[in-house]
């Protein structure tokens, strides 16, 4: 067994490490840009909706439609469809760079919906109270909507990152690099199942870790929960994870 690990690592170690690095780069940069676009879009949806604080029927309908269209295209189709755009923006259709554009385009509407849902949970009465105190629209967004929805936004963040991670694996099928690419090239094309399984196990651990971390973060920043119960729950979760490793 030990021998197998040594030879396996000697042969595929650097490939896997590169794949992991590429996956982290793609997920990290795509998430960053998708939030830079998706967060304002989600805020705009909340503000312009019929009962929002800046209702604007036309704008809302337009943004809502864009988000729906973006959400209804399967990632793999979208990726191929926007290849000319990708080339225009980053100069290449493939590799890590080529994957980031479709990842951002695909994740932005997803994140916009997530943000919209998180913000819609903020009590309308609290928004009205802020208005009654003379808060401007910007102040309401910055000082009420975003801070009050922070725990939900963090939980949404975990879902977004995991979704983008899944997309990167798909991007691998068209030469994007990263773990998905390795799984296809070595696991599928060459039939080296050990590599396939290592990537699968690594992805499972990664998703679990992200979810756990974000759950814990959301819970520890949420002041709506009773403080003592909160500590207890987080501890429970960690303890459970320790047992199932």
């Amino acid at each position: 067994m030990a021998e197998f690990i040594t030879t396996f690592w000697a042969e595929y170690g650097s490939i896997l490490l590169t794949g992991i690095r590429d996956t982290f780069i793609m997920v990290g940069i795509s998430t960053l840009f998708a939030y830079l676009l998706g967060l304002p879009l989600g805020v705009a949806l909340i503000l312009t909706q019929p009962h929002g604080i800046r209702p604007n029927h036309l704008l809302y309908r337009l943004l809502d439609w864009i988000v729906n269209v973006g959400r209804s295209l399967p990632f793999i189709i979208l990726m191929i469809a926007i290849m000319p755009l990708t080339k225009l923006i980053v100069g290449t259709k493939i590799g890590v760079k080529g994957a980031i554009v479709p990842l951002v385009v695909s994740a932005t509407p997803f994140i916009a919906r997530m943000v919209e849902t998180a913000l819609s949970e903020v009590d309308a009465g609290v928004i009205e109270a802020a208005q009654s105190m003379g808060a401007s629209t910007f102040q309401i967004v910055w000082k009420v909507y975003l801070p009050e929805a922070k725990p939900s936004l963090v939980l949404g963040g975990a879902i977004s990152i995991v979704t983008i991670l899944a997309y990167t694996a798909m991007a691998g099928t068209v030469g994007a690099g990263g773990l998905g690419d390795i799984a296809i090239q070595y696991g599928h094309n060459r039939g080296i199942l050990s590599v396939l399984w290592v990537t699968v196990i690594f992805l499972i651990i990664l998703v679990q870790a992200i979810q756990l971390l974000f759950n814990w973060a959301a819970r520890s920043i949420d002041k709506r929960l009773d403080q003592s119960a909160k500590g207890h729950k987080a501890f429970d979760l960690l303890a459970r994870f320790a047992h199932t490793k």
């Binding site: 009590d123 009465g125 109270a129 009654s132 009420v144 009050e148 922070k150 920043i221 002041k223």
Partner: peptide
Amino acid sequence: TMIFQSFNLLMQ
């Protein structure tokens, strides 16, 4: 200024 039935405090 105004106060409300449901208090409407910022919970965070």
